[in-house]
Computed example of a mutant assay.
Amino acid sequence: MKYSYLIMVCIAFAKANSQQTPPQLTGPQLLEKAIAYHDPKGNWSRFADSLEILTTSPDMEDRTSNIKINLPAKSFELVSKRGDIVNEYTVLKDSVVTAAKMDLSQMDTTFVMGKEDFKRAVFMRDYYTYLYGLPMKLKDKGTVISYEVERKMWKEKEYLVLRADYDPSVGSDIWFFYFDPETYRMEAYQFYKQKEPRVKDPKSGEYILLSEEYKTNGIKMPKVRKWYYNKNDKYLATDTIVD
């Protein structure tokens, strides 16, 4: 009887222990699990491929963007077309930058653009490699990942929410990333301007809902991105990777 009692106690303890809530993940731990889902073989640093992105918006003509990203070669090319206007940007190792604009309605006239357009070429490179490199890009230098992870109900679903701030030399927005608590798949993100240091302005910024998946180079990218204003949930546009 004595041994039977001890066995029963051990079983009860093991059962109770197994039913306890799992330990809360830290921010860095959540990020590692999210990267393991989206880039299980660590291929992002070797990414070299092309993407075609269709942007639709209720207020503008559709835009098609053809992008070539080659991270080992540090090169980026973008050709975007909206109506009769074509914009071309090329960036190579931050030193060779070209920008051109064509109006197809005027006999393919080409306009070589100026200094500000060259800056925009670098901006477009950083924009596309950031968004399509998430969540892996959250490991970049200058990104400050919060240690705390928030468990939050949002859009009728529970998420694990990771906050990212940035060194002033990198950026000034405050970002929040929403991950499925079971798979660690990234399903949304949003950003805010700073009202004061490290305090978000709730009337600023946008949120982006992610759906479907596009697989390339062993990486699972969100295929569809739908953009909305934070302040009033107004729909802005949808970006879709074209197969």
Rank of each mutant, 00 (worst) to 15 (best):
V9P: 00
I11W: 08
F13E: 03
K15I: 14
K15P: 02
N17K: 10
S18N: 10
S18R: 07
P22M: 03
L25S: 07
A34N: 04
A34E: 01
I35L: 04
I35M: 02
Y37R: 01
D39F: 04
S45E: 08
F47W: 09
I53Q: 05
E61N: 13
S65A: 15
N66H: 09
K68A: 02
P72M: 02
K74N: 09
S75C: 05
F76T: 00
E77T: 07
L78S: 02
D84R: 01
I85P: 00
V86E: 01
V86M: 09
T90Q: 01
K93A: 15
S95M: 11
K101N: 10
S105V: 01
T109E: 10
T110V: 15
G114W: 13
D117M: 12
D117C: 05
A121G: 09
V122C: 08
F123H: 14
M124H: 03
Y132G: 11
M136D: 07
K137F: 12
S146M: 09
Y147W: 08
V149F: 11
E150W: 08
W154P: 07
W154S: 14
K155F: 00
I174E: 02
I174N: 03
I174G: 01
F177R: 03
E182S: 05
E182T: 12
Y189N: 08
Y189M: 10
Q190V: 02
K193M: 10
K193C: 03
Q194L: 10
Q194H: 07
Q194A: 13
E196W: 06
R198P: 00
V199G: 03
E206L: 02
Y207S: 06
L209Q: 14
E212I: 06
P222T: 10
P222R: 04
Y228G: 05
K231W: 09
D233P: 06
A237T: 11
T238G: 10
D239H: 07
T240F: 04
D243C: 00
